[in-house]
Design a protein around this nucleic acid. Sequence first.
DNA 1: TTCGATGCAAAAGATTTGCATCAGT
DNA 2: ACTGATGCAAATCTTTTGCATCGAA
Lengths: 149, 149
Amino acid sequence: MAKEKTTDEALERFALFLKRHSLKMTRERRLILREIFSSDDHFEAEDLLLRFRARKEKVSRATIYRTFDLLNKAELIKKSDFGENHYHYERSYGQEHHDHMICRRCGNVIEFSNPDIEALQEKIAKDYSFEMTSHTLQIFGYCVNCRQK
Amino acid sequence: MAKEKTTDEALERFALFLKRHSLKMTRERRLILREIFSSDDHFEAEDLLLRFRARKEKVSRATIYRTFDLLNKAELIKKSDFGENHYHYERSYGQEHHDHMICRRCGNVIEFSNPDIEALQEKIAKDYSFEMTSHTLQIFGYCVNCRQK
DNA sequence: TTCGATGCAAAAGATTTGCATCAGT
DNA sequence: ACTGATGCAAATCTTTTGCATCGAA
């Protein structure tokens, strides 16, 4: 199944990253990566913690944060900000890049992607001799259900 | 001078917003708005607090946060996230829209603006019948000085 | 056997809130 | 006068860290 393939690839990539930095692949790191790649959804630290607890998997909050940091550095996940004061994360490997529209009233997040915008960003970075590693775009406003007609 | 004009307009706009919501224009709110509009720079809550303290202006941290929230709602300032775990703010009135390139190594923030990207965002919002009130775009990577040649 | 990793609890930061008092309207 | 605003300190919430112990290589 495609999902499992992606997970395995991500795991491999993570293993490589760890090796390159003389770090170790542990049960917890594997669990966290697997959990993240088991779905396409955004996730938060607290969120994962609760899922593990519900399943009686023993992974501490500290380890979750520490692993997010590594996964972020390995460019397997990335942080995004939806205007709340904690981070949201999402997979950045095995998923095509996309951006977000966030409804200010209902909080709903709509994903979209637009190749023209991607291309323009590359061009801008190049113009400034900036080496782009990632980018994120948020459109805030009111979704179709929440806007005042 | 242009800056003073903008400040006055912003003040007027804030007054209107407050009136519409049956809120009051106070000395502190005026001070905060003035301080923000006295420069084009990004700012943070702590940042403003220190500036007031240095000048012996009496404005509490709580009031700063509460006022930021109002100014944000009045669309006079906006929050942005540069990947640190606290908010940065910037004026959103009297300043043309721009986006940011953030260097992962030195933390430097480069502003840029691109009308084509603006236009594309408008179009995308329209396509989703999304009423856009603001948008923010960040490019992360390495600036010209920090990239490895 | 050697370091890095984990869990826990404490610490650190940023932001919010309850409450008594103050001040616009 | 009425009602919202302020300041303070305490509370909250998220994330980080020190340290003793554990486990991958």
